[in-house]
Amino acid sequence: MSQVESDIGNDDWIVFLGWEPHWMNVDFDIHYHEDPENLWGEASSVSSVVTSDFADDQPNVIAFLENRIIPIEVQDQWVYRYSRQDRPLETVAAEWIRNHPDQVNEWLEGVTTADGQESARAAYQATL
């Protein structure tokens, strides 16, 4: 990344292998080229995996995990703040949750509090 930063700072072109999520996508104006011959393989994804027992025993957690789809741009920002700005993970998460209530509300659709007595959305709204 230091070579990329140097070349960009000198207005030189550079080609390199990049990926997401990564802080480089926040720091640099990057263009990803197509891979029509699939030389680098298929696009990757991050998934939550649980045992079938867990899924049966914890439907509330499963509902949350199924709702929680995180756009790559958001992941880039999280990685940037944690890795590049050297901010504590808990701080990055707490600030993002506080600043994105609409997204958090989508994640909490159909989810209840741990005791099952209240909508998780309502509990979250009470903290705002």
Rank of each mutant, 00 (worst) to 15 (best):
W107H: 02
N25Q: 05
G110Q: 06
Q77T: 10
N10H: 13
S48W: 09
T51D: 12
W13S: 15
V92D: 00
D27N: 09
W78C: 01
R98T: 11
V26L: 03
W40E: 06
D35L: 09
L128C: 14
D12M: 14
V49R: 07
E73S: 12
P88C: 02
I69R: 14
D12E: 14
G41V: 12
H100R: 14
E20H: 13
A122M: 08
E109R: 15
W107N: 00
V50H: 14
A114P: 03
L65R: 07
V46S: 13
G18Q: 02
P36K: 06
T112M: 12
F54N: 11
S47P: 11
V104M: 08
R68Y: 01
A94R: 07
F64E: 02
V104C: 02
H22M: 05
S47G: 14
W23V: 02
D57A: 14
L108E: 00
S48H: 08
R84C: 04
W40Q: 07
W23F: 07
Q117Y: 07
H22F: 08
L39A: 10
Q3V: 13
G9E: 09
H100C: 05
Q3C: 08
P36L: 09
Q75H: 12
V111D: 01
D102G: 04
N25K: 01
A94E: 10
I72P: 01
E5D: 10
I69S: 11
T112W: 02
G18R: 04
V49M: 09
E20K: 13
V92L: 04
S52D: 10
G18Y: 00
N67M: 09
L65P: 05
N67G: 01
S119D: 02
F64D: 01
N67Y: 06
D86Q: 13
D57F: 10
Q85F: 08
V79T: 02
W78K: 01
N99Y: 07
N60I: 04
Y82K: 13
N60S: 03
S52V: 08
V46I: 15
S119T: 05
V74K: 01
N10F: 08
F54M: 15
G9Y: 04
A43Q: 13
R81K: 10
E118P: 03
E20I: 11
R81E: 08
Q3S: 12
I97T: 03
Q3W: 14
Q75Y: 06
A93W: 09
R81T: 02
I69G: 10
R87H: 06
D102I: 02
W107P: 00
R81D: 09
V111G: 01
A114I: 05
D86L: 12
V26P: 00
F54R: 10
S83H: 05
